[in-house]
Amino acid sequence: MKSPAAACLLAALLLALPVGAATRDEDPTEALVRHIAKDLRCAVCQNQSVYESNSDLAKDMLRVIRDKVREGQSEGVIRDYFHQRYGDYIYLEPTTGGMNRLLWLGPFVGLLAGGWALLAAMRKWRAKPTATPGNDPPPAAPDAAMQERIRQELEQMRL
């Protein structure tokens, strides 16, 4: 009596195991298609990837990518195919090669140059007052005319 019930329970538990879950996974072709399409700009919609866009051009580009993946072309070859036709614009993430390196490195070079200039300037500001205190000539004694003016101004203030 006990053993058939236990067997039933065991069978039920075994059936519930996610053994078949692997079949739900995407097939590898489609995963590669998605991977490639996610970094290609849908040419007519500015800031959407080919994968996300619903435009006709994006759908057809997706089809072209899928055909090429099925033919066994590698990711690099497919990306190059689009790059040769649409230029740098087609990549959602700009490449770091060639003239683009200037754009990537420029800000850091600018920051360094600015920091260096600021440091040099600060050093100069700090050096000035300590280096020349004794060298200042003593103020000349005001002459008679000046003394007269000072006296007048002080008088006015006393009003």
């Binding site: 006709d56 051009l57 057809d60 580009m61 072209v64 036709r85 649409y86 230029g87």
Partner: peptide, 11 residues
């Protein structure tokens, strides 16, 4: 299917 168009970099 605009295969030629894509091949020619048409927007």
């Amino acid at each position: 299917e605009q295969k030629i168009a894509i091949d020619w970099g048409v927007y």
